[in-house]
Amino acid sequence: MMCPSYRVTGEERHSTRGRARLLHEMLAGEIVTDGWRSAEVAEALDLCLGCKGCRSDCPVGVDMAAYKAEFLHRHWAGRIRPLSHYTLGGLPGWLRLIAGLRAAGAVDALARRLPVPGLDRDRGGRLPELAREPFTRSLPATTAFEARGPGRSPGSVMLWPDTFTEYLAPETGRAAVRVLRAAGLDVGVPRGGTVCCGLTYVSTGRLDRARKVLRRTLDALGDVPGPVVVLEPSCAAALRTDLPALLPDDPRAARLAAAVRTFAEALEEYAPEWRPPRLDRAVVGQTHCHQHAVLGDGPDRRLRERAGLVGELSGGCCGLAGNFGFEPGHHGVSVACAEEQLLPSLREAPRDAVIQADGFSCRTQIAQLGGVRARHLAELLAEGLGDGPGEGV
């Protein structure tokens, strides 16, 4: 996977080695003399997609995404930031605000018609389209995890309502509830307040804001006695790694990080005897960068095999990478990254193949550049269930 932008540009400054060297020179202060305000370092890091591929692929485990977040945090300290840091970087807050308005439908339509400052015009300059109803509002009140009380069964899991599932793709959450219940698990969602992994704030270097969001999330969650199933790979990775790194002195952060499970991990660990529906189809699509680099995809591969999904998902990076592909000046690199592995795999796929991408960014890129709809593994399995447990969720 490492490094998508270097594989596109071929320029040393865009390699992991080149970026690390520039950061070293910046800290040494002999060649790069303007420190954290360095325009040269900022330019080299601008095309870092934050894929974290170097975290797993680099022989010395460099995490350039974390370095970039820290650099942006210090580079823009006390200054007005690029507009995209406020629009895309603050996406959870904007979506929550819009969804909370009584005239949400009219607001959403307006947002889709008018370009939004700070978004790339080649992408249409518009925010993603909101769902008609947020994921958690579509669930019965009895689904609230807090309602289970201290007597929760050993098969209870909390389903994390990440920003993308909550406001942009609630069908993924509903499908996951169906499948987890079909596997015999008792599923709930947090209702103590808004929760967020802080990912968009971290990726734009708004680390102080990320810490506030994460503390508020921990306050809202309270005790987390069991597994927390996170459908969005980037959010799962953020909770496992960024959360304890940003709040190292808060024991609640370490507990939540340890409780995080991906969808496939939860099924493998807590419903090992469950047999998924047989789909018996070829599968193509995209393994999320953070899944590859931080979470691993062993349980996903085994779950696909048990469901009869044959084939390999694309390596590399889809090129959208959260806010990256929507930021001005990134569209060309974003498309080139997709052309490196993802788009050719879609064009070469069997006609009846199903398309899987667990990351919302990956699904968005596939829809915009490939013209087809990709689905989360939970959606594929839910469709194979037919009428059964969880129907009507």
Rank of each mutant, 00 (worst) to 15 (best):
Cys3Leu: 13
Ile355Val: 11
Ser156Glu: 06
Arg240Thr: 04
Asp223Met: 09
Ala220His: 12
Ala245Phe: 07
Gly149Asn: 09
Ser15Gln: 05
Val230Gly: 03
Leu88Ser: 05
Leu207Pro: 07
Pro150Glu: 09
Ser334Val: 06
Ser38Glu: 00
Cys58Gln: 06
Ile366Met: 06
Arg302Thr: 04
Leu239Asp: 02
Leu139Gly: 02
Val187Tyr: 05
Ala271Trp: 01
Val335Gln: 07
Cys318Thr: 07
His292Pro: 02
Gly319Asn: 02
Leu168Met: 08
Glu129Asn: 14
Pro389Arg: 10
Gly222Tyr: 06
Val213Phe: 08
Glu43Trp: 12
Leu377Pro: 01
Gly118Asn: 05
Leu114Ile: 12
Leu72Gln: 05
Leu342Val: 04
Leu83Asp: 00
Leu207Ile: 05
Gly192Lys: 04
Ala44Phe: 07
Gly319Glu: 04
Ala182Pro: 04
Arg375Val: 00
Val284Arg: 01
Pro389Ser: 05
Asp63Tyr: 08
Pro251Thr: 06
Leu199Tyr: 12
Glu40Tyr: 13
Pro227Ala: 02
Glu391Asp: 14
Leu380Val: 07
Gly316Ile: 03
Arg363Trp: 01
Leu385Asp: 02
Asp162Asn: 04
Gly329Arg: 07
Leu180Thr: 00
Pro277Asn: 14
Pro344Asn: 10
Arg21Thr: 12
Leu231Ile: 00
Leu159Arg: 01
Pro350Val: 10
Arg211Lys: 05
Glu11Ile: 07
Gly315Thr: 03
Gly298Gln: 14
Tyr67Val: 10
Gly124Phe: 05
Thr204Cys: 11
Leu385Phe: 02
Leu309Pro: 04
Glu12Met: 14
Val187His: 03
Arg216His: 12
Val179Tyr: 04
Glu273Cys: 14
Pro276Ser: 11
Arg96Lys: 13
Arg112Val: 04
Arg306His: 09
Met2Phe: 11
Arg375Phe: 00
Arg363Gly: 05
Ile355Trp: 09
Val60Tyr: 15
Val116Ser: 06
Lys52Glu: 08
Ser314Glu: 09
Glu25Asp: 14
Gly285Phe: 03
Ala42Arg: 10
Ala254Ile: 13
Asn323Trp: 13
Gly192Thr: 04
Asn323Ala: 15
Gly35Asn: 10
Trp76Met: 05
Gln368Thr: 15
Leu110Asp: 10
Asp108Arg: 10
Glu340Arg: 11
Cys197Ala: 07
Gly390Arg: 05
His85Cys: 03
His292Asn: 09
Gly184Tyr: 14
Arg55Ala: 13
Tyr67His: 14
Leu199Ala: 12
Glu70His: 13
Asp34Gln: 13
Arg132His: 11
Cys196Trp: 08
Glu265Gln: 08
Arg216Val: 02
Ala183Ser: 13
Ser345Arg: 09
Ala266Val: 01
Val294Pro: 03
Ser203Gln: 15
Ala236Glu: 01
Gly188Phe: 00
Ala254Thr: 15
Arg74Asp: 11
Glu340Leu: 10
Pro82Val: 01
